[in-house]
Design a protein around this nucleic acid. Sequence first.
DNA 1: GAGATACTTAACCGTCTGGTTAAGTATCTC
DNA 2: GAGATACTTAACCAGACGGTTAAGTATCTC
Lengths: 103, 103
Amino acid sequence: MPLDDTLGALADPTRRAVVERLARGDATVGTLARPYPMSLPAFSKHLTVLVDAGLVRRSKVGRTVVCSLEPAALDDVAAWVAETTAFWHAAIDRLEHVLEEDT
Amino acid sequence: MPLDDTLGALADPTRRAVVERLARGDATVGTLARPYPMSLPAFSKHLTVLVDAGLVRRSKVGRTVVCSLEPAALDDVAAWVAETTAFWHAAIDRLEHVLEEDT
DNA sequence: GAGATACTTAACCGTCTGGTTAAGTATCTC
DNA sequence: GAGATACTTAACCAGACGGTTAAGTATCTC
């Protein structure tokens, strides 16, 4: 289930903030990590989670590593939420129909 | 961060399936649990996660417990994804602009 | 009211997660 | 090529997570 990995990756404030940051443009690992009060290895592991979830791409440029957003996985989340809420609205509509018939 | 709880709750296939099921209409705990090859306590804990995330409401009816979807939390997820992808598209547009100026 | 039904709570257990420090690798600079 | 820079990998640790069984509570049925 790719949605498991995607949603799991986004269920962490650090990782969600990284995705938000990358939505505004690419950045190196060092730049991304600077705001967070954790060691670089810890941050690197968060990045690995995002990469494994298909949300982020790492590419080595010289001795730095540039990260960029891979928004297809985000689209999958949007699609699932949209589909589920659509079914929910349909259920609401049916319920209202029943209530109308009842009165 | 309520999004932490919401996304964390949805990062599990059982819980996501329960949300999908509830989007089609309310159901009792027993009915919801039946399809899953796990003990009732295990399933009940999944429900608790969904309730704590604000996605599901439990209400006791006689000796059964009826669950219903609380889609406001789902809306928050949709809003976050929409906002993030919007920023990403804006970044793409800026990049294309730069490329145009370059040529 | 005794027993069955529909759950929840409690206690426990192995595995995954999020952090640490120390060591390794690749690249740049001098 | 020696040292500094930018990371990643390895090894470890405490706590959260997903499951279990056993026991508890509330309601219905007879």
